[in-house]
């Protein structure tokens, strides 16, 4: 997809000890583009996702967001993170706060939003993910799928320019996966820029503009979903697809 780049990685490298998890990664995500990152576990796809908002530091290379390089630490980094929503595999809702408070907190703390304004917006977002009736419950009282939808609403409350999804459905019971994917599909239709690390091939086929296949810390293929799923070029991708598409 043409258009201007929102997220840009150039020559990014990272090691965990002796393990080279990201090897010279180049990746550009355009505004409004949905990029799905797939690959075997340990291929570095989660690390890649987390590096984009610097939850993982990188050793070399540059990461720019909307033309600005990622700051090192401190307030500038916090400001930049506020512009990129993140959804985690394990939801990470604030356990000591109600669903509504979870969604309201960051706008009030970071954007200094007024309490009633933040609450109004939070209820609107909870309604959008179909959870308006659960606003006063605590996260532990919700199912995994509901918690993940709250987490998406919480990230959206900051009006992010892009959303990162780090295996958002991997910790869910099969029956709850769809309710989360449906929210994500809607988000994609609304034109949100998204980087999604997932094992959901159906979602990759139906919602992604591009599929990035990673193996052993490298981007092996970066193509449209049709091309990738019907005619993978690399042996690595063929092998991967044959294993996961069998069942």
């Amino acid at each position: 997809m043409a258009g201007d780049a929102l997220i840009e990685l150039r020559g990014v490298n990272k090691h965990y000890g002796a393990l080279h998890v990201l090897k010279d990664i180049d990746l550009t995500v355009g505004r409004g583009e949905v990029v799905v990152v797939i690959g075997p576990s340990g291929s570095g796809k989660s690390t890649l996702c987390r590096a984009i908002n610097r939850l993982e530091t990188v050793e070399s290379g540059t990461i720019t967001l909307d033309g600005r390089p990622l700051p090192e630490e401190g307030r500038a980094l916090a400001r930049l993170r506020a512009e990129v929503g993140m959804v985690f595999q394990s939801f990470n809702l604030f356990a000591h706060k109600t669903v509504l408070a979870n969604v309201m907190l960051a706008p009030m703390k970071v954007h200094k939003a007024k309490k009633d304004e933040a609450a109004r917006r939070a209820r609107e977002l909870l309604d959008r993910v179909g959870l308006a009736s659960q606003a006063d419950k605590y996260p532990a009282q919700l199912s995994g799928g509901q918690q993940q939808r709250v987490a998406i609403a919480r990230a959206l409350a900051m009006d992010p320019k892009a959303m990162l999804f780090d295996e958002p459905t991997s910790a869910l019971d099969p029956e709850m996966i769809n309710e989360v994917l449906e929210v994500m599909r809607q988000l994609a239709r609304d034109g949100m820029t998204m980087v999604v690390v997932t094992h959901e091939m159906g979602f990759a086929r139906s919602a992604a503009h591009r599929v990035v296949f990673m193996a052993d810390g490298c981007i092996v293929e970066d193509r449209t979903p049709e091309d990738f799923f019907t005619a993978p070029r690399s042996e690595r991708a063929k092998d991967f697809l044959s294993k996961i598409l069998k069942h």
């Binding site: 916090a78 930049l80 506020a82 985690f88 990470n92 907190l105 960051a106 970071v110 990230a155």
Partner: peptide, 25 residues
């Protein structure tokens, strides 16, 4: 859990906010 702090930071909260509003309580 470290995920609590990570979630707070990913929302743009500063270190004192993350510690005071999320982790210490």
């Amino acid at each position: 859990p470290t995920g609590q702090g990570e979630a707070a930071r990913s929302l743009g909260m500063s270190f004192p906010q993350t510690l005071g509003d999320i982790v210490l309580p």
